[in-house]
Amino acid sequence: MYAKDVPAGTVFYHGTKADMGVRDLIGAGFESNFDERGLKHVYFSATLDAATWGAELARGEGRGRIFIVEPTGPFEDDPNLTDKRFPGNKTASYRSVHALRITGEVKDWVGHSPEQVQHMKESLARMSQEGSSTIIED
């Protein structure tokens, strides 16, 4: 599903370790899980699995959280996943320069196994060392 094809009423998620609540806004300008620079987009997904990875890989202390969010402005497909790794946007991942409004929280999400998380962290570290982890922010 591409951004232009997202049906009205689609539920969007954002995984993080940020301590936020309903009605708060998640904005751009923060470091991602994969890059230490502030980003001009905020990223989100229509799949719980992608948000789970976000919550598990988020930088910082505290527990991972998955928020239900709604975009406050236009959004587009995330080119970092759609073009590079999952053609066709199988992960239903998007980004926006506009904030996301938190409308709820998924409390009962189930994370990946510790082995899967460790493997993903090792893969991300390897990509960083190879210089292939750059986030497209055009």
Rank of each mutant, 00 (worst) to 15 (best):
A58T: 02
R59A: 09
I68K: 15
E56Y: 04
T52W: 03
A55V: 09
A51E: 03
G64T: 05
G54A: 14
P71M: 03
E56C: 13
I68M: 12
A51H: 09
E70R: 14
G60K: 14
A58E: 02
A51M: 06
D49M: 11
D49N: 14
R63Y: 03
E70W: 07
R65L: 13
A58Q: 09
E61G: 01
P71Y: 01
A51L: 02
P74G: 06
I68L: 13
R63H: 03
P71C: 04
P74S: 13
N80T: 09
E61N: 07
A55K: 07
D49P: 02
L57M: 15
A51G: 14
R65W: 07
V69M: 12
W53Q: 08
T72A: 00
D78N: 14
L57P: 00
G73T: 00
D78E: 00
F67P: 10
D78S: 02
T82S: 09
F67R: 12
E76R: 10
T72Y: 01
E61Q: 06
N80M: 08
P79Y: 14
G73L: 03
N80W: 00
L81R: 04
I68G: 05
L57Q: 14
R59L: 15
R63N: 14
E61A: 10
N80E: 13
F75Q: 05
F75M: 03
A55G: 07
I68A: 11
